[in-house]
């Protein structure tokens, strides 16, 4: 079941360093929301605050409000582990479990939720997820081989398969295509289009065309100056962002005239 996310006055810290400041936005359910912005402006940091991954770094914390379908994410009654099971994540760098086979990597999340599952169910989940991530044809004959034996791009698709295998409510993707060739990238974009009908998807990308192609809404993050916290400059429907943005900085960034 897809969920919408409301963010109100969110500040994100690493210890004393404020990395992101004053974010307000609404991420729509069953839509793709893209974040763009220069390196270091806090896109990953912000994304990680949406499934409470941020706080696993010592000293890291957030202030402000994030609600998922009305339920406050940072409420003291909420178990962060539960949050992460429902809000899946694909990381900037591929990170399959090195000792596990391809098959077991896909199922890693499912195994956390249910220790025992019939072999047939497991097989179905593995095939469906790998097909979803456009990896099935390449690995179907070596599912028992270690996930680390795949190429970087294949590993990233394996991680996507692992994330969608548990059918999360929201899928957060941090530059999922930065290590992929154009064919795999197109496959992932197709996948995002398909997943959109069931999931809420948030994607960080440095690729403007990709943001324009896949997303419904786009948020542009920027830094006022180095060492200053990043902030959300503009958040609008993607069409508006790429044709008639409200903010001159957005237009400068998108058209490549920046800095």
């Amino acid at each position: 079941m897809a969920k919408s996310i409301d963010i109100t006055d969110l500040d994100i810290y690493y210890g004393d360093f404020k990395a992101v400041e004053g974010v307000n936005m609404t991420i729509k359910a069953k839509a793709v929301t893209a974040f763009i912005g220069p390196s270091g402006c806090g896109k990953s940091t912000f994304l990680r605050s949406l499934n409470r991954m941020h706080e696993v770094i010592p000293g890291a914390r957030v202030e402000g409000k994030v609600t998922v379908d009305g339920q406050s994410l940072y409420d003291s009654a909420i178990d962060p582990v539960e949050v992460r099971r429902r809000i899946g994540m694909v990381f900037q760098r591929p990170n399959p479990f090195p000792t596990m086979s391809i098959y077991e990597n896909v199922l890693a999340g499912n195994r956390l939720n249910a220790k025992r599952m019939p072999k047939a169910t497991a097989d179905t989940i593995v095939e469906k997820s790998l097909r979803g991530a456009n990896l099935w044809n390449e690995v179907k004959d070596r599912l028992g081989k270690p996930g680390m034996g795949l190429s970087g791009g294949q590993q990233q698709r394996l991680c996507i398969a692992r994330a969608i295998a548990v059918e999360p409510e929201v899928l957060l993707m941090d530059e999922p295509c930065s290590a992929l060739d154009p064919i795999s990238t197109a496959a992932i974009e197709d996948l995002i289009h398909e997943l959109k009908s069931d999931y809420t998807i948030v994607i960080v990308t440095h690729n403007m065309q990709q943001a324009a192609r896949v997303s419904d809404d786009t948020g542009f993050f920027n830094l006022k100056a180095a060492g200053q916290p990043g902030h959300l400059v503009e958040f609008n429907p993607t069409k508006t962002m790429f044709t008639t943005p409200d903010n001159p900085d957005t237009e400068a960034y998108i058209s490549g005239r920046f800095g």
Partner: peptide
Amino acid sequence: RLNEEAAIGLGATRWE
């Protein structure tokens, strides 16, 4: 860190 975050991101408890 990468491997630990992979597990945390799947919703693993500390022991998991």
